[in-house]
Amino acid sequence: MHMADALKFVSAQPKDTQGVVASAVYAGGRRVAEIPIGEAGEWSRRPGHVVWIGLHEPGLDLLRQVQREFNLHDLSIEDALKAHQRPKLEQYGEALFVVVRTAQMLDGRIAFGETHLFVGHGYVVSVRHGASTSYTPVRERCEADQKAFSEGEDFILYAVLDFIVDNYMPVIEAIQAEVEAIEDSILAETATRTQVPRLYQLRRDLLRLRNAAVPLVEVCRRLEQPGLPGIDPAMSPLFRDVSDHIRRVQEEIESLREVLAFAFETSLMTGQAQQNEITRKLAAWAAILAVPTAVAGIYGMNFENMPELEWRYGYVLVLAAILVACGWLYWRFRQNGWL
């Protein structure tokens, strides 16, 4: 369904179905019709038909309506309403309930969302919460590949999982580009004070992304195994491919975390080196200034028996000695790289 069609369809729904992005029935890989939620259960029980419903942050009334149509379990409805679940796959009778974490870059931070998938014989219901890309491109891609789409609800589940995992990569690439820029500035000694907290922030976000992505390996592993309702064993290679993509995401995350740790340590070492440089310069100037300070302190004691006070050229000689001593110290510090 195109976005314009989806919006038109949603606007035509009654108030208790607001949150419905798309609701359509398919047969043989072709879209038969757009249907209201109240007719979804009847269409799903027709041989060779699959109902695909997309919801975005639905309310309890809408979820209860979907529950009645497909006889969904109360616990899965409760999880889909509250969100904030860890990635998992649960089996309730002849239905599957899959939770997947989604991720997007928003204002320089990784924003996380959730997608809950109800999969059973003749139906797939996707529920999106939080930061998540619309699954309209997935629906359009499936509709364009009618042969693969005719496989049914398990192919829809694969297509959504694959889309979610693929969307992790733009997030990683955006962080990688920023990390490389920060790393270059650190090595060029042009880093700013705000970059150290940013490095820590990025490392923490990557850890959260890892915790969101890695559990999907176990979800796909279970989907590869025979015996799950509605999952054709012939789909195992596709779910295995999703697992491979997740492992690649995991490797990229671990690599980036190592780079961030190196950049963080390098920034701290650079900062310490800069502080040591400043300390050396201050110590050098303090040593230079100590010479005139010491001489002035001696002549400022105001003793009566100081023969130097009677010398005609004493003042000139003292100033010359001070300048020579300070000049020699300056030259030595320059030679040693302290100034």
Rank of each mutant, 00 (worst) to 15 (best):
S132T: 12
A103D: 06
T115N: 14
H56I: 11
G59L: 07
A174R: 08
H73P: 08
S76N: 04
V50R: 00
Y135P: 14
F70G: 01
D162C: 03
L89N: 11
N71T: 13
Y168P: 08
H73I: 01
N167I: 00
F118N: 11
I53Q: 11
A177M: 14
E178H: 04
N167R: 07
K147M: 10
N167T: 01
G152R: 14
R139I: 11
F70C: 04
A174E: 12
I164K: 03
E114C: 00
L62I: 03
Q176E: 06
V138M: 10
S134L: 01
I53F: 08
F112L: 06
R109M: 01
V100N: 08
R64T: 04
A95F: 05
V99D: 03
K82M: 15
L72V: 09
A177Q: 14
A111I: 07
R86I: 01
E140P: 07
V179K: 13
E90I: 11
L75W: 04
V138C: 13
N167G: 10
Q104H: 07
A174Y: 07
V171W: 10
R64P: 10
I53W: 12
C142A: 08
V51E: 02
A181C: 14
R139T: 02
V171N: 02
V171L: 09
V138P: 05
L62G: 06
D74P: 14
L117F: 12
Q146D: 09
V50C: 01
V124H: 13
R128E: 12
F118I: 00
E143I: 00
L96F: 02
Q146A: 02
A131M: 06
A174G: 04
G54Q: 15
V100I: 09
L55V: 11
D166E: 11
A144M: 11
G122V: 08
A148M: 15
I164F: 03
G122L: 10
I110W: 15
L161N: 10
H121P: 09
E94M: 02
D79E: 01
H84Q: 13
L117N: 09
L106P: 06
F97D: 05
Y92V: 03
I53P: 10
A95H: 15
E114D: 04
V125C: 01
T102M: 10
L106G: 06
F70L: 12
L60A: 14
L157W: 02
E140C: 07
E69D: 06
A111S: 10
H56G: 15
L106H: 14
P170G: 09
A95E: 05
R68M: 11
P137L: 04
F112K: 07
G54N: 08
N167Y: 06
G54T: 13
D79I: 11
G122C: 07
R86M: 06
L96Q: 04
L89D: 03
D79S: 01
D74M: 15
I172E: 09
D74V: 08
H56Q: 15
H84K: 15
H116I: 11
Y123F: 15
V165I: 02
S150R: 13
L106S: 10
